[in-house]
Nucleic acid binder design. Structure first.
Lengths: 293, 293
DNA sequence: ATTTTTTATAATAACGTTTTCCATATTAAT
DNA sequence: ATTAATATGGAAAACGTTATTATAAAAAAT
């Protein structure tokens, strides 16, 4: 922005009035402005293609109009949909939707949060789940508190250990539903493909499933928990590593739907028929899921 | 941000110096500051958890640090990857990545552009292709010029009729490659599933393919052009509508990969074997594509 | 011992708004 | 005809920074 910008003063000059009056017209304030001058101002605005500098307005009003959205991976359908939903919800309300893709890295998440603090974000949505890491938790706790005292509204969409409002997607509830379903269909030997290590959400889903199965007197032994990372690729790899125990297993639960899809794909690829040979279930509810085989 | 914020003045008071000095420490400016005071300032900053107000800095420096990214649909893998790439490229450079999801609506795109103008964006990436609509073009032309004179750097990732720098993904080139490939493999009767109506990119791909086929003395007749919308669903519907002409066709080109995937899925579903019965080709290069059947 | 240079600090204006406050002219009420 | 109320306008301060200018002290050069 090397060029000198068009300001309220230029408009005032052209409309032969004071900047104050122009401001009043822009924000159609309570303070009355005569029909006559208002029109001259409007004309001047039109002519100069003026639009008020949001940055300056923000400084004066102590509002940044920034809404931060912190996400693990925008390419993951789950987050893409969430970001889209937020954008659409916000659209038209003159907010800046500011996204951060953390790739589940502690550094990037801290970077995101400190940027949002420096930019005096009006609100922050923590769309990606929290990580389970002592140092991370400690640093995050501190900066989250700073955001709060700064007046930033915080919202966690996935569970967070910090003291913020959380829209829980009910991981435990999902686990219970799945457990019930599996038991009803007579499954006894169940395997679980985990989510990313250190992710709070993984923990909740895994332990939730364990707990729910236990209520039906079923066990989820460690050797039937395979590592994954919420991705299609992860699901595929997990499928390969559970192949040699396949005869012991009647159902596999993926920590999310991408995992389940990868699982199904590779099982099919290896000649294991889903769902006749084995059942596969995923958590979440992606639209793609209905096209799985 | 109802609370009164911590400013450079608070830091100055605690460090027993002037705001000027604090500013110099923050920006480690050329102007010398004694080791002693610098340390006191750092300590005060630490103690108060102060971070300089980016909004105020922006006003002073005439930079917003905002980079706008305008996209048709974040849920579309193609755009998701692009947004992720941009975010990662920018990350660490203290920029605000501000996304807009237009859903290919003229109103939303104009909204996005005017927001970015009002916020004095430093740069805007037009990641979604332009629409072919007279009124749209006219209005966009005007505001794009305003952005330019404002000093905003503009970049089109997909082709745009406006006078901005474009990174062309070479639609025509892709069309030529595909045409050559099809001809080499002996295909004579080729169908095309179009992209969204009014989208400039659709136009370029369709006409590019026509042109390239013509060089091989092949025709792409209107009755073999089926409508689509760049989505998996669109590909599926197209598959259904080309079923009754299936014996006339040896290959189908999807305007993008999502279309091709939907196509393949539904053809398989209808008992048409890909690629033994018919060949399917898509434009773009999504990672999911390699798992198609 | 004086002048010049270097080092360190602060006061002030400016960025583009909006929000008091203050001033005038018009109209209504006495 | 005087007072009170209302309509319309502008000047100036403020938001939190930083760049410019000014000033004083210390160090170096004559």
């Amino acid at each position: 922005m090397a060029n000198k910008e068009i300001t309220i003063k230029d408009v005032a000059k052209l409309a032969e009035c004071s900047p104050t009056t122009v401001s009043r017209v822009i924000n159609n304030s309570d303070h009355p402005v005569s029909k006559d001058t208002a029109e001259k101002v409007e004309a001047a605005i039109e002519k100069l293609n003026f639009s008020p500098n949001r940055i300056a307005q923000g400084l004066k009003s102590d509002k940044s109009n920034i809404i931060g959205v912190i996400v693990h991976d925008i390419c993951d359908s789950y987050f893409a949909q969430m970001v889209k939903g937020i954008e659409e919800f916000i659209s038209g309300h003159e907010y800046i939707v500011n996204i951060y893709n953390t790739s589940r890295s502690v550094e990037k998440e801290l970077y995101a949060v400190s940027m949002l603090k420096a930019n005096r974000a009006d609100a922050v949505v923590f769309a990606g789940g929290a990580l389970m890491d002592k140092e991370y938790e400690q640093k995050m706790y501190s900066i989250v508190e700073q955001l709060k005292t700064q007046g930033t509204v915080l919202l966690g969409v996935t569970p967070h250990p910090f003291d913020i409002n959380n829209i829980s997607l009910g991981n435990k509830n999902a686990a219970a539903i799945i457990a019930d379903y599996l038991v009803e269909n007579g499954h006894q030997k169940i395997a679980f493909i985990d989510g990313p290590e250190k992710l709070y959400t993984s923990y909740l889903r895994r332990e939730g499933l364990k707990e729910s199965l236990l209520k039906h007197n079923l066990d989820l032994p460690d050797e039937l928990i395979f590592s994954g990372d919420f991705s299609f690729e992860g699901g595929r790899k997990a499928a390969l590593s559970l192949l040699d125990q396949i005869d012991k297993i009647t159902a596999v639960v993926g920590a999310n739907d991408a995992t389940a899809l990868g699982l199904i794909w590779e099982l099919n690829n290896q000649g294991v028929k889903v769902p006749s040979d084995i059942s596969v279930v995923g958590i979440d509810d992606l639209p793609e899921a209905k096209y799985s085989y």
